[in-house]
Structures are given as C-alpha cells and as structure tokens.
Design a protein around this nucleic acid. Sequence first.
RNA 1: GCCGCUAUCGUCUAGGGGUCAGGACAGAUGGUUCUCAGCCAUCAAACCGGGGUUCGAAUCCCCGUAGCGGUACCA
Length: 495
Amino acid sequence: MGKNSERTEMNGTLSQNDQVRVRMAPSPTGYLHIGGARTALFNWLFAKHHNGKFILRIDDTDTARSTDESMREIYHALKWLGINWDEQYVQSDRKSIYEGYVEQLLESGNAYHCYCTPEELEEIRAQARVDKQTRSYDGRHRHLTSEDVDRFIAEGRKPTVRIKMPDTPIRVDDLILGSRNIDPDTLEDEVIVRSNGMPNYNLTSIIDDAEMQITHVIRGTEHLNNTPKQIAIANALGLNLPQFAHIPLVLDDTGRKLSKRHHGDLVAVNRYREEGYLPEAMLNFVVRLGWSYDDKQEIFSVDELIEKFDLERVGKSGSVFDIKKLEWLNSHYINQLDVAARTDAVMPFWEQEGLVDSNTKRDWLEKIVEAVGERLTTFQDIVPQTRYFFTDDFEYDSKAVKKWWGGSDEKKQKTCEILTNLQQILEEISAFEIETIESAIWKYTDENDIKRVAAMQALRIALTGTSFGPSLFDIVVLLGKDEVLKRIPKAIAHL
RNA sequence: GCCGCUAUCGUCUAGGGGUCAGGACAGAUGGUUCUCAGCCAUCAAACCGGGGUUCGAAUCCCCGUAGCGGUACCA
C-alpha cells in the first residue's frame, strides 16, 4: 500500500499492453548536475522496472544558450553513471514538426500573433504587479484589426505566437502530488513561438511527448506550473496526454534548489567522477534523495533498484544534498572492490601527480593500496595518503612534530635518542620483514621502558611527515631498508 | 505582489488513529590498537504552531506560520 491512496487510483490509465516510454529532456546549457542526474535516474529506473524505453531528448530550442560542449558533458555524465538511452532526439532538428502544429493552432484560432515589444511587456508586467493582478499579459493582441497588424509590420515589429488559454478549469493529475483543478484566471496566453521563429519549451515539450508516445513525464517540481499550460496546448491540438509525476527538488544545505547558477560545479556530476567517486555510490546516493524502500535498506545495487523502484514511494518534500552521506556510500563501494580494482582506480590520480609512471612496479603499488586499506573516501584521497611512499620531499606536520617529537628541548633530546636507536636496530636487520622488525622494535621499547606509541609515532613522522596512516610496519617494509635508513637521519637533522 | 507546492532528529527517511516515534549519515563517549581510519558498544537528537473530530491525533479536517518553486520571446 502506498503512502498516498490518491495515487493508486490513477494507475488504471496504464493498460497491460502499453509499453512504458519515459524521457529525460535536459537543455544543453551546462553540465549535468545532481538534480538532473536524479531525474534521469528516476526515469531510467522506472523504464527498466516496467521493461519500457528510456529516451534522451535534447531540449535545445534556446539556441542562444545551448552548446555542443554542454551536450557532450551531459552524454558523458550519463554514460559514466551507466544510464543508457534507447532513443535520442534533438529538438532543433525537429523545427518543421513544431511549425506544422503552430500552423494548426493558428488556423483553428487557438493561437494568435502578438506584436508586443519586450519593453511593452515589461511595462505590462510592472503594472500588473502594482495592481496585484494574478496574471501579467492581458491578451491585448488577441483581437487585432488588420490595420493594427499592418501598422506593426510597417514599424518592423516581428510577432511572437501566443496560445489562447481556455476559460474553463484545467485538471492536472499527478502521480506524486495528486490531482487539482487550475483556475483559468491564473493562466495567461503563453508565448509558444519567439519572434525569431524558434518555438518555446512549453510547446515543443508537450508536442514531443505526444509524438514520441511518452507515457509518463517524470520531472522536477519546478515544472509544476508549466503542466497546465502544456495540457492546454495539447488539448487545443487534440494530442494525447502523458501521465505526470513531479518529483521534489534537490536542495542545498540552506534549503534552496540546487542550480548551476548558484552552486557552480559543486553540483556537477562530472566533478564527482573526476574526484574519484564511484558511479554506484552516486546512483545509490541520488536515488535516496526523495525515494526510500523501507526502514532498513540503505545500500542498493543497480539491479535491486530496478527491481524495487516505484513512484509510489517517492516523497513530496525536497531533500537536501548531503555530501557526508555520499562520502559514506562511496567509501562503502570502494571497500567492496578488491585490491587490483582499487589499484586500477587509483592509478590515474597517482599519474596525474607525477608520482607513478610506467616503470613503477605494479606489485609494489598494489601492496601500498592494500596497506592503505579502508582509508579511502574517494580515489583522489590516495595522493595525500601515499605521497611519502614516492618521495621524501615532504614537510613534517607541525602539530604532529609538536606533539610527538617534543615541544621542549628535553623531549627533542629524547626523540633524537629514540630515532638514533631505531636507526641502529633497523640497520642490523637483514631480513626486512614485518615480524622481524616488529619484534625488534618491541624488544627495544619494552626493555628500555619506552612507550610503544612514543617510539612508533616518532618514527612515523620521520618516515611520512604525519602522525597518522597505515600500519607503520607496512610502511617500513614498503619503503625498504635503504629508504628508511636515509629518512631517519634526515629527520634527526631536522630536529 | 501574484500563483502553486511542501512540512518527523542537524541531514536522508520509516511509520499514517493506540509504537518507549524505528533505521541510516553526521555528532559525542568508551573499547580494540603504534597513529588514523575501520570495527564493536553506548549516548544525544524529531512529529512547525493553534484549533477541531475522537476514549485516544505525529497520523484525519480547518486555520495560521515558515520554507521553497514558479512568475521570461529560459528550460
């Protein structure tokens, strides 16, 4: 049973034979962001769950803002996430199709030319606000005389096309939000074709949904107010309507809608790919923004999502993008990978930093990854966490130095003594292996009444520059005897 | 301004007339340990407010309030 009984009543519209067809319709005006990725994912999961088709439609009717680069970014992000599409369309290729429908609208008297200038519209809007009007455009060019038209044309004005809104209420059924009736007085005659001849979103979207036989339009609630407009256009054209499902917005930590404009590439999917997040983690994270299965499960494989995803379990309120949760999921998925796979994933980050090249021994690298163990939140973490394996050109962390090497001369003296002794002990070990080293060091600390942690931390800082990291014995062995014996004197000199 | 949507721990959410309001992330504490992470244990943390309906309301209804979205010749 769903959380909202209103929803189930509407599912009857979909008969057994109808194949589900859904679409993701981004406008190529920037990268794909977290919210867009979630819309894509919900659509894709819905299609997969119902054995239907997922269509990618590029809504690029805003030619001024659309770019090919952005289109490629979107493809790239989607592919990385594993969201593949069955069909693809680009609206700018379909201009003539829309023109046919506009013609039809004009001929049937459901649309008309509007010669208002942008300045004029600006004034109308300002006045409507002062008058506390519900709508701004008042339909003043609905009934122009031919003299008016001639005059406007003589002035060189290029018209837009506006749809005539009906004067009866429009019923909007939404699978998530339920049903409501829209008061026609709140609707104004929308521009459906710009003065430059390019059709607008509300027109092309609903035409394509019909043309492409889209059964379910799953999109963000920022489109909720567009829905009655699109329904009105479809009705005027005698087009079949899809079912609508408006999913709540993804918000930032102040509760505002995530957007490219306000959040920059902080919300770009590709950025997370570059930083070493796993697509599985991304998908798992994003799906839980607004959707839940029960009160137990947090981790879902893609197959499980396909099996379990359901619009009925999508909530109505917005959800905040919480990077901590993403990080948790990412480290979970990273830790599922075996050492070889983790090494592969981490390699580009090492190479990018110039730490590793084709001569570096794979075997050794895998051992480093193994030593790092479950400490990675993202793959790019490998760089700060392992840099010291590749170079002795690092700073000694000042806090660590103060705490473990000593703030006082007396303590420094002691540290110096310990490191000197350790150097000697390690020098005498010929078989440089964990067990041997461990027992030698424990023997030294225990016999000389030195705290294990003091000796180990002193050595750790000498070898790595920091006070934390993998098991120190692993580090010593991986660094190798020569390197270790070089770094200790260097540290002593630094004291 | 106008139109609309929403409201459970800090965050994601479960529950939908009777529950000690459950889980997860984040946080705190303790244990394990050479450190960190991890792991284990424990703790803290919520039904926006006010009215109804009812034996009983977080749950149903109404009214507020707040937040957000839209308000383009963007999508």
